[in-house]
Amino acid sequence: MDYGTFFLIASMEGAVQAAVLALTALGLSLVFGVMRVVNVAHGEFYMLGAVIAYWVSSQISGSPLLGFMAALILSPLLVGVLAAVADRLILKRLNYDPEATIVATIGLLYILQQAALTLHGPVPTAVAAPFDFYVRFPGFGYSGYKLFVIVACIALMLGTWFLLAKTRIGLVMRATQYDRETAQAFGIPVDRVYAGVFALGAALAAIAAVLIVPTQQAYYLMGGDPLLLSFIVVIIGGLGSLRGTVVAAILIGMSDGIISTLFEPTLAKMIATALVALVLVFRPTGLFGTVAR
């Protein structure tokens, strides 16, 4: 097969990965930006999103489309509520201390992983795609659903951007991010904002998982990779920069796909990881970051 086709496939796969990654990382970035909390359990919220999607869609027999729509609403909702509860019960009591919240979210990671193993089981389970058609390219077929995932992720990111930049909720969040004490003095219910941000961050991860799970499968250990990649994306993009997060997700999603067509795949992963680390070394605030406060 010629290099043009290689490149086309690598780009499309990279775009899918980048889109889902951007959405997941956006949640992590939001939580870090507003709350200064490094949420190690972010990947587990992603995993829960996928597992709940499996359960919801398996309860609704008949039309995969109906099950998918139900999962798209219920899964982020449930995960968001769970996150808000975790915020109230644990993070708030720790006063959002950076080190303490890392330990607490590691603890949360174990608890959620074990819950998924006990309740869902250890076997990766497939979720049917809401619709099923292949786009035939010369020499290969490509899933139409994957193309839909890209579009859906872009729409959701635009929605989040609108929420943050154009609405009162976004204004309140930004005010809290900028200066917690002053925001409180101006009557902003900081506690509720924090719970809401944590829930929104988790819900974004869950929704990304619902979108991607028909092309993969729900598995109790699936949270690890999205967590690592989201971390990398958030830091490379520059802390708290929405635009940076999206650009970094595209960079990482695409480079992984394209470098792996040039080298041996494992070697490509090694090179790509080292390169990204070196970008950070020589540009410690990321691509779009300002100096961390």
Partner: peptide
């Protein structure tokens, strides 16, 4: 010599990524 050019969360991530390269190696 490389990673200490960064600090805070960036240091966390840089060390994590170098370590991931080591694991893949």
């Amino acid at each position: 010599l490389l990673a200490l050019r960064t600090a805070g969360v960036s240091f966390m991530i840089v060390t994590l990524m170098f370590s991931q390269v080591g694991y893949l190696t």
